[in-house]
Amino acid sequence: MNHNNPYQPIPCQVEEIIEESPNIKTLVLLPSEDFSFNAGQFVSLTVPGVGEAPFTPSSSPFALDTIEITIMKAGKVTSAIHSLKKGSMLGMRGPYGNGYSLELFKKKEILLVGGGVGLAPLRSLFLALLHQISEYKQILFCCGAKTPQDYIYKDQVFNEWLSLCENLPLRMRLAVDKEDDAWDYMKGVVTCTLDNPDMDVHKGIAVVCGPPVMMKFSTLKLLDLGFPEENIFLSMERKMYCGIGHCRHCMVGPYFVCKEGPVFSYRMVKEEASLWA
């Protein structure tokens, strides 16, 4: 990383592109320099001549050769990223911010709840937890999407991870708002997966990531269930330019999402206006 100019990105090559859903792709990137991150931290990706946007990697922080980033087509930069081909170059700088504090999660029961493309940062966290699964008491991974087609990481979720539940202290609950004939799991918005979590909620850790409305109602439900405010972790999303605490665009009250976040405990930010925007 060039510390002389904090805006200087590392060139990265697109190694592979995985189509997750009609508007979501995962890019496998090969950085031209050593690069490591903690689960929940974010990076800034630049498409030369187009622009820059922040993303949280979705691969395991323990996998060091390549880095995977799952991106939904939403604006100018993400559209340009979606049009990249295998072998294309883009820029990456970071990692920035505070990720998930795994030390805090040790010996605890952990509930992860993700909706839609919000599953991306949770995948990175989930893979990090799996890497040292003996350190944690149990994991309940709750996922939701609009339809079965909108699920990202389909192969991993429905084959690999579900089969892990047989031998590991791991449970998965999958839901869709609108089912199809082949859907074998729960039906309803993702909060329905949070009923009867079957864990000691008063000591448990809950991690929420997804669209604002999903985060809001999931958090309210987790509080209802009895999770302590300081044990509910939210992954916040805001407009960001610099990523280094200078430009002030990402602020939630007095907090910088790029510095103190993007992972915040609910207790820290609960009184801030426009929290769920």
Binding site: P48, G49, V50, E52, Y241, C247, H249
Partner: peptide, 13 residues
């Protein structure tokens, strides 16, 4: 101090 960043078109950063 608020500012925004824009990338100029071209191959370079």
């Amino acid at each position: 101090v608020c500012f925004l960043l824009e990338d100029y078109s071209g191959e370079k950063f």
